[in-house]
Computed example of a mutant assay.
Amino acid sequence: MFDQFVNFVRDVFSEPTAFIPLHEPRFTGNERRYVMDAIDSTFVSSVGQYVDRFEEQIRDYTGASCAIATVNGTAALHIALLLAGVKRDELVITQPLSFIATCNAIAYTGAEPVFIDIDVTTLSLSPTKLKSFLDSHTEVRTGNCYHIASGKRISACVPMHTFGHPAQIDAIVQVCRAYHIPVVEDAAESLGSTYRGQQTGTFGLLGTYSFNGNKTITCGGGGMVVTNNEQLGKLAKHLTTQAKIPHRWAFDHDHIGYNYRLPNLNAAMACAQMEQLDMFIAHKRHLAEQYARFFSNYAYQFIQEPTQSQSNYWLNAILLNDRRERDEFLEFSNNRGIMTRPAWTLLTKLPMFENCLRDDTTNAQSIEDRLVNIPSSVILA
């Protein structure tokens, strides 16, 4: 199958000999014109019309009441956790299969992650295992959830929509609501993905997106916080601009603030990318259909969108039989100019988080051993 895969990818991407990356950006719209306009305006930093326009585009697209642009997705998640009330020496539930930024943002608050296993159909936090952990190891008192053994408050839950595929987010939110735990969605990879017709990132108290260079749309960096809580939205805007009290000349600040605002230059590119988002997703879904047909002829599972979901298919993925075969596939494809990558090393194995609380991680370990991401760039005729 390995040879057939390489030939198939080269045929689909119409690249008979050139290197084929995992996911590269496409700039086919107004990117250059908007960026030059931002330069000509002299508003190239965190104030400018494109920042406002980008936030409006995200509000319109997702249906969220508030959207606050940030310099990157990790900054967005950090601010969202602070807004959710996460404090030092508290606990935040998340999943072991995720990019390091998820746990880094938790660590920035001074809190510690608690790792709950994933669901194999979504590759994201399992609501069943979440409920089992909370039922067995926590209690609710005075309107808060506490981990019984450590006595620490569980102040948030951060499910991540893995590779753009929606988690069972409504069930996760329902479980957390019963335990008075706010949900902050890490939707960094899933802009444009929907669950039961609703955009990922808009189910929890807050949600966050990333616009890094390898995402479905990009502005070089960039992130976004979304929420339907107007008060939190205003505070997010305030905190990400150094908590400066608006005034024509005075420099007064009323909170510890953060230099997290997105520059207008980046926002200009983002606005052009947003205009093409639906088109990009349509092409990515077509590529996923082609992969699904190809792998149906072989004894390997192509990861498809969960039920009741529509995925942006940010990164396509397959499951091989074991880690040995996974590594053979990675070496074979990369040696032939087809970029493939394994899933992230489980966060529970990293030295910064290996001593954190965890439940069973059997599903996550199985996915880490067998999953490979395959080329997923938008193909334009």
Rank of each mutant, 00 (worst) to 15 (best):
F27Q: 11
P351Q: 05
R88A: 09
S150K: 10
L330P: 01
A156V: 07
I39E: 12
S45Y: 12
S150V: 11
L239E: 02
L315A: 10
V9K: 00
C219M: 11
Y108R: 11
S210R: 08
L319F: 04
G220C: 11
T216W: 03
Q308M: 15
D60L: 14
E24G: 14
L232N: 01
T218Q: 11
L125I: 05
L330E: 07
Q273Y: 00
A111F: 08
S333Y: 01
T227L: 03
L125C: 02
R323Y: 12
Q365M: 08
R177H: 15
Y34T: 05
H253N: 15
E112W: 03
A171Y: 06
Q168P: 03
H78P: 00
G222H: 08
D322K: 01
L357S: 07
P246Q: 14
D40L: 14
A64M: 05
Y50N: 05
I116A: 01
F43V: 03
D327Q: 14
T74Y: 00
Q310Y: 05
A18Y: 07
V226T: 12
I58Q: 02
A38R: 03
L330S: 01
R59T: 05
N312V: 11
V44C: 13
A171K: 14
P342A: 05
I379F: 01
N228G: 02
R324T: 11
D52Q: 12
Q174R: 09
Y179D: 09
I68Y: 05
T194R: 13
V173L: 07
V226R: 07
P96E: 02
D322F: 04
G221F: 12
V35H: 01
L83A: 09
Y34N: 14
E331I: 03
A270N: 08
A292N: 10
V51T: 06
A64T: 01
T361H: 08
F8E: 04
I217M: 04
R323F: 10
T361K: 00
Y313S: 02
R358F: 10
A18E: 13
R341Q: 11
Y108K: 09
Q273N: 02
S311H: 03
A188K: 00
D252P: 01
Q308T: 12
G110Y: 01
E368Y: 06
E328Q: 13
G221V: 06
Y34V: 09
E31C: 01
H78G: 02
D360L: 06
V372H: 02
A292G: 04
M224S: 04
